[in-house]
Design a protein around this nucleic acid. Structure first.
Lengths: 341, 341
DNA sequence: TTGTACGCGTTATCAA
DNA sequence: TTGATAACGCGTACAA
C-alpha cells in the first residue's frame, strides 16, 4: 500500500500536487506533471486509505442498513428468503453510486446507534423496524434517513420512506374474491402491525364495499415460530372450514396453509380458495399456482437507496412517501363461486 | 460526538490517561481518576471514532464478504432466495465477535481488490466465486481468507474453505433412487462447475455402484436466465420422458421442473420421480413434497465466519477444508418402482 | 504551477 | 500515576 507521501517523494513533487491530480483538479497543474503523476499512480497501484480520508473530511461514504431481527431469538431476519432481493437492490445501487454498505442486524437500537456513530455513517436505511424504533433512532441520528416499510413515523428532522401501496394491494385481492362471489373471507397474518395493518385495512375496506360485515372470527392469527407453527396451522385448518377463502399476508403463509390443507384432505381451490401476497417463487411454482399480489422487492431496495443517495447529494426528493405499485397475479388457487349458480 | 481530547480537557487530564481507562489499562491509573473518567465517558456518551483508531492501529475490524453476481447482468446474486441464510449466519457471527461486515458484489475482481485494500479489510470471505477468481484475489491479498463453496483452490498463502459434502449428498440421493429400482436417472443443473461438479461426481458414482452406465444424454442442462427458462424447461420436460427419475442440483430447479411437468399433464411421482437439493421452503411446502438433500445454509455461514475469526485471532484452525454434512429428506416425489414387480 | 504546514481522533512511546 | 508528543494518511488553506 503506497501512500501519497511516498509517491510525492519518488516524483520529487509535493503531496498537494499528487493529491490535486488524484482529485482531478487539473486546471491547477501542468500537463506534464499530470502525466507523470498518473503514470506513477498506475504503476505503483495507488489506493487511497479511506480511514485517513474519512478522518480528514469527516465523511465516511458508508450507508448503514439497519434491520431488526424477528423477536424469535434463535432465528434471524435473513430467514425470510425474499429479504435478500431488497438487500440486493440496495447493494447494487449503493455500489454504483460510489458508496459502501454496512449491515446492522442487532436487536438493540442503542447498540446500533453506537456503531453508526463510531463509523460516522453518512446515511441510514431502516428496514422492517417498527415506528417506535425508527423514531428512537431518529432522535439521536440527525443525518439523512430513509425507511422501508415503516408507516406513521412522524419525527424531526423528517424521514423519507419507501413502501408499498399495501392497502390498495390487499384491496385488489379481496375485491377479486368478493367479485367472484366469496363472502366468507378470512384474513391470515402473524400480527396486525406495520405493513399488515395496512393490508388489514384494505381487506376490511373490500369487505365493506361488498356489503360484508367483518367479525373478529375472521382473523386467523398464525404463530410462525418454528416449534409452534405446525400446531398453529392445524388450528387454522380447522377454523378455515367456516370460510370459502383465506387472504394471507405473504406467499409463504399462503403456501404453508395450502400444504397443510392438502395434507388434511382439503383441496385448493375446490374446497377453499387461498390468496397470497408477494408473488415470489413460492407462489409461482406451487401447484395449484397461488393467486397473489405482486410486489417488486428489488425495486423497493433500489428506490430506497436512490432516495437516500439523492438526499446525501443535497438533491431534491419529490415525495416524502413513495408507495410502489402492486398488481394482482391471477393463478389457480381461487374458485369462481359464481359458476355454481 | 465528543472526542478524547475534549474529554481530557474537561477533566483536566491528558488524552493518554483517558485512553488508558477506555482500554482497561487500569493498573496504570489511580482508582479515583478511573471513576471520574468512567463517569464522564458515560455522561458525554463517548463513542470512539473508528477511522482514527484504524488509522492509528492499521487495522479495520472489517470482514469483507465478496460474492460474484451471476453472469446474468440484469439479475443479481441475491435473487437466490437462500443466499440470505448464509449471509445471516455470517452477519450474526461477525457481529458477535466484535467485527463488522462489508458486502462486495462486484463482478470485477480488480474493483473488489481495490475496495478491500482501501478499507484495509482484516479478512475476506469468498462466496460463490470460481477457483480462478479466488486465486486471483489470493495473489494480491495476503491476509486471512476463507472460501465458501469453492473447490480445488491451491494457492499461497493457503486459504481455508467451508463447503458441503456435495458428492456424498448427491450420492445418497441417487443411491436412494437406484435402491428403489430406478435405472434411467437424469442429472439436471445449469452447468457442471463448482459444487455441481462435485454433485455430478456423486451422481455418477451412485450410477456406477448400481451397475448403470452413464450416457451423455443423461445430462439435462437448464438455462436459468429469465427469458429462456420457460423454453428450456419445456425442452427438458420432453426429454424427461426417457427417464424414470430426475436428480436436480437445487430445490428451485426441482420445483420448477415439477410445476412444468404438472402443467404438461405429467404427474410427479406417478409418471416420473423428482429429487432436489437444499431442503428449503420451496421443496418443503410443495405438494407433493419434494424429496431432497438437506443442507444447513446458515451453518455454512457461521462456520465460515468462525473460521475466519479464529484465523484473525491467530488461533489454530484444525482442518483447512471443512465439509458440512448432508442428509436425505424423504418426502413424496419419488416412486418406489419395486412395488410394480 | 507547486510547496509548506496543519488538522482530523486515536494510539503508543517515553519521559516526568 | 500521569503527561507531552509523535505518528497514522489524507486534504486543504495559504504561501511562494
Amino acid at each position: 500500500m503506497i501512500t501519497i507521501k511516498e509517491l510525492a517523494r519518488k516524483l520529487n513533487l509535493s503531496t498537494t500536487t499528487v493529491s490535486n491530480v488524484i482529485h482531478g483538479k487539473t486546471h491547477e497543474v501542468s500537463v506534464s506533471t499530470i502525466e507523470r503523476v498518473e503514470k506513477a499512480l498506475e504503476e505503483y497501484d495507488y489506493v487511497p486509505n479511506i480511514n485517513a480520508r474519512n478522518l480528514a473530511q469527516n465523511k465516511s461514504k458508508i450507508i448503514g442498513l439497519a434491520m431488526k431481527p424477528r423477536a424469535d431469538k434463535s432465528s434471524n431476519i435473513f430467514k425470510d428468503p425474499f429479504i435478500s432481493e431488497v438487500i440486493g437492490g440496495i447493494e447494487k445501487t449503493v455500489r454504483e453510486a460510489g458508496y459502501f454498505m454496512m449491515i446492522y442486524a442487532s436487536d438493540d437500537m442503542n447498540e446500533l446507534l453506537k456503531q453508526v456513530s463510531t463509523w460516522n455513517v453518512d446515511g441510514l436505511l431502516l428496514f422492517g423496524l417498527l415506528g417506535e424504533d425508527g423514531a428512537a433512532v431518529r432522535r439521536k441520528y440527525k443525518k439523512p434517513v430513509v425507511c422501508i416499510d415503516i408507516y406513521n413515523m412522524v419525527c424531526d428532522p423528517p424521514v423519507y420512506s419507501v413502501g408499498l401501496e399495501d392497502e390498495a394491494g390487499a384491496y385488489k385481492a379481496v375485491r377479486y374474491l368478493t367479485d367472484l362471489g366469496h363472502r366468507k373471507i378470512a384474513f391470515l397474518s402473524d400480527d396486525i402491525i406495520g405493513v399488515d395493518r395496512e393490508r388489514f385495512r384494505g381487506y376490511k375496506k373490500a369487505l365493506n364495499d361488498a356489503g360484508i360485515e367483518y367479525k373478529d372470527d375472521n382473523y386467523l392469527k398464525l404463530n410462525p415460530w418454528e416449534e409452534e407453527i405446525e400446531q398453529s396451522l392445524s388450528d387454522i385448518c380447522r377454523k378455515s372450514q367456516n370460510f370459502s377463502a383465506v387472504f394471507c399476508t405473504s406467499d409463504l403463509y399462503a403456501v404453508q396453509l395450502t400444504a397443510k390443507l392438502f395434507d388434511s384432505g382439503i383441496r385448493v381451490p375446490e374446497d377453499i380458495s387461498v390468496i397470497g401476497f408477494d408473488d415470489n417463487a413460492l407462489s409461482k411454482y406451487h401447484r395449484p399456482g397461488i393467486t397473489t399480489v405482486h410486489q417488486d422487492m428489488e425495486k423497493k431496495g433500489i428506490v430506497a437507496a436512490e432516495t437516500l443517495i439523492r438526499l446525501l447529494k443535497g438533491l431534491e426528493v419529490e415525495k416524502s412517501m413513495n408507495q410502489l405499485a402492486t398488481n394482482l397475479v391471477i393463478r389457480d388457487s381461487v374458485k369462481d363461486l359464481r359458476e355454481t349458480e
